[in-house]
Computed example of a mutant assay.
Amino acid sequence: MTDATMAAINEAVTLGRQGKTVQAREDLAALWNSVGVAGDALHRVTIAHFLADLFDHAADALTWDVRALDAADSLTDERAQREHSALSVRGFYPSLHLNLADNYRRLGAFDTARRHLDAARERIDALEDDGYGAGVLAGITNVETALAEGNTDRLPTH
Rank of each mutant, 00 (worst) to 15 (best):
D3V: 13
E11L: 12
V13D: 04
G16E: 11
Q18R: 12
K20C: 10
A24Y: 02
R25K: 14
E26R: 13
D27K: 15
L28D: 07
L28Q: 06
V35G: 03
L42A: 07
V45N: 10
T46K: 03
F50R: 00
F50H: 15
L51Y: 13
A52K: 04
A52W: 01
A52Q: 11
D53W: 04
L54P: 00
L54H: 05
F55M: 03
H57E: 15
A58P: 11
D60S: 09
A61Y: 04
L62Q: 13
T63Q: 10
V66I: 08
A68T: 07
A68V: 03
T76R: 06
A80C: 08
Q81L: 04
R82W: 05
R82K: 13
S88R: 14
S88M: 06
G91E: 09
F92I: 04
P94V: 01
S95W: 03
L96M: 10
H97Y: 14
L100F: 06
A101F: 10
D102E: 13
A109N: 11
R114I: 10
R114Q: 14
R114G: 01
R115I: 02
R115H: 11
H116L: 03
L117P: 02
D118T: 14
D118E: 14
A119S: 15
A119K: 10
E122I: 00
L127D: 05
E128W: 06
D129N: 14
D129M: 06
D130Q: 10
D130I: 12
Y132E: 06
G135K: 02
V136D: 01
V136S: 02
V143A: 13
E149L: 14
N151C: 06
R154E: 14
P156R: 12
P156G: 11
H158F: 15
H158N: 07
